[in-house]
Simulated assay, not measured.
Amino acid sequence: MVSNEPSETLGVASDALTVQNCVPLSATSVLASGDDGAGSVATNTFDDKLDTRWSGPGKGAWIDYDLGSVKSISGAAIAWHQGNTRASNFTLSVSSDGMSYTQVYSGKSSGTTTAAETYAFTARSARRLRITVNGNTVNDWASIAEARVCGASSTGSGSGVVWRGDFETGDRSQWSKTQMVSADRLQVIASPTRQGSYAIKATVRQGDNPINSSGNRNELVRMTNEKEGDEFFYRWNTMFASNFPSAKTWQLFTQWHHSGDSGSPPVEFYVNGETIYLRVQGSTVVWSTPLVRGQWQDFIFHVKWSANSSVGFVELYHNGQLVLPKRNVATLYSGQTNYLKVGLYRNSSIAQEGVVYHDGWIQGRSLQDVQ
């Protein structure tokens, strides 16, 4: 096949690929759905040369990397051919047998750089990673200069891990304190769990008001004390019970509360009706998704804490996909710090019992730390 893909080089050095936020795993072999018939073959994508490439014709063209054995995979670093002049639409899928694949990421390259961009997802055990390209903003070709499969951090639990609140102690001792009317409202349980041996079940009934404040609540508190200039990643898992109330009012399940006593928190995850929201500064919704009951929801939340909206930002991965790219926004109130509250806090008008499960809390300084 004669390629209609432009052949000019990028004027970049042919040296080892530099990747960010990625621990590269060695691939033993690579396959592709096809190529241009003019030398732009699959093996070019791990020759450490940004001036060679693989080019596959048509939307749906794919390239597939075999690691030789099952390993923990947490992302892919991809340097796109002419990545500074066009954006490519693509998905990432993983497989343990080369036959059955699970999609773990869907997104679009930035269109601003020829350097490798890292696309992260919740770590999965798999042997193969497949990149499927559905055209770009110029044509329908798939064209990749270099690609690497990303694995877990070589430091294991991560040297940048700040705190764990995953309940693997079998109690609530990892947390600073509780705000609950009785111990059964924040109960450490062995089932259901998202990971490990324990999770916590948060229950709220109408009238639960352990701190004599507005609303009803039972919450765990961790004095994380985020201050101006701090930057952290947080990972956790939440599941809403199958009978979780459908109420057209607020029901918070995760919040970073300000050190002041009154007013809406600067960052809050909550349910209203049949929708989950992420809201900042008490009024700005930056992300939403339909409420799903009876299934674990996986969150990775990246925050730069600042009262300056041009410095602070939020970034969110939900169920292994980047759903909110970095967005600049104020994440602190001026002159204040934040702390974490997890459980269930809701409008006192809700009569039905509410149950939410939480698991896997970890705070770190990098994406690899929390994966």
Score class of each variant (00 low, 15 high):
Trp287Met: 14
Ala241Ile: 03
Arg172Met: 10
Glu228Thr: 06
Val162His: 01
Val285Tyr: 04
Asn134Pro: 13
Ala61Glu: 08
Tyr333His: 11
Asn134Phe: 13
Ile300Gly: 01
Gly312Ala: 14
Gln363Pro: 01
Leu17Ser: 09
Val138Asn: 02
Val329Ala: 06
Phe167Trp: 07
Gln20Asn: 15
Ala13Lys: 15
Arg217Val: 11
Leu25Asn: 12
Tyr277Asp: 01
Ala351Ser: 14
Asn209Gln: 12
Val267Phe: 02
Ser110Pro: 01
Trp296Ile: 04
Ser349Met: 06
Tyr270Trp: 00
Gly170Ile: 04
Asn237Arg: 07
Gln336Pro: 00
Ser93Arg: 04
Asn89Ile: 12
Arg124Gly: 10
Trp80Ala: 04
Glu274Pro: 00
Asn347Ser: 05
Trp175Ala: 11
Gly229Asn: 10
Thr91Gly: 13
Asn338His: 02
Val104Tyr: 06
Gln255Trp: 02
Tyr65Leu: 14
Ser7Thr: 10
Ile300Arg: 10
Gln179Trp: 08
Phe121Leu: 09
Trp141Ser: 03
Gly260Lys: 14
Leu50His: 13
Gly170Phe: 03
Leu324Cys: 05
Gln363Trp: 03
Ala115His: 07
Glu8Ser: 00
Ser191Lys: 05
Asn4Leu: 14
Ile73Tyr: 00
Met1Arg: 04
Leu50Ile: 15
Thr275Met: 09
Ser154Met: 07
Trp287Ala: 08
Gln82Pro: 00
Ala77Ile: 06
Ser153Gly: 08
Val104Leu: 05
Gly312Tyr: 03
Ala32Cys: 05
Thr203Pro: 02
Arg128Val: 14
Arg185Tyr: 04
Asp140Phe: 05
Ser125Trp: 00
Ala199Asn: 02
Ser14Ala: 13
Thr113Gln: 13
Ser69Met: 09
Glu353Trp: 00
Phe167Val: 10
Gln363Cys: 11
Tyr339Cys: 04
Thr45Met: 10
Val2Ser: 03
Phe299Tyr: 13
Tyr105Glu: 09
Arg172Asn: 07
Leu186Ile: 07
Ser366Leu: 10
Glu274Phe: 01
Glu274Val: 06
Gln103Asp: 13
Thr275Ala: 09
Ser95Glu: 15
Lys177Ala: 06
Tyr277Ala: 02
Asp359Met: 07
Pro192Asp: 11
Lys177Arg: 15
Gln255Lys: 12
Asn237Ser: 15
Tyr317Asp: 02
Phe240Trp: 08
Glu228Gln: 14
Met223Glu: 15
Leu324Gly: 09
Pro245Thr: 13
Pro6Leu: 08
Asn44Leu: 07
Thr254Cys: 01
Tyr119Met: 09
Val342Met: 13
Pro266Asp: 11
Thr137Gly: 01
Asn243Met: 04
Ala152Met: 12
Asp230Ser: 03
Thr112Glu: 10
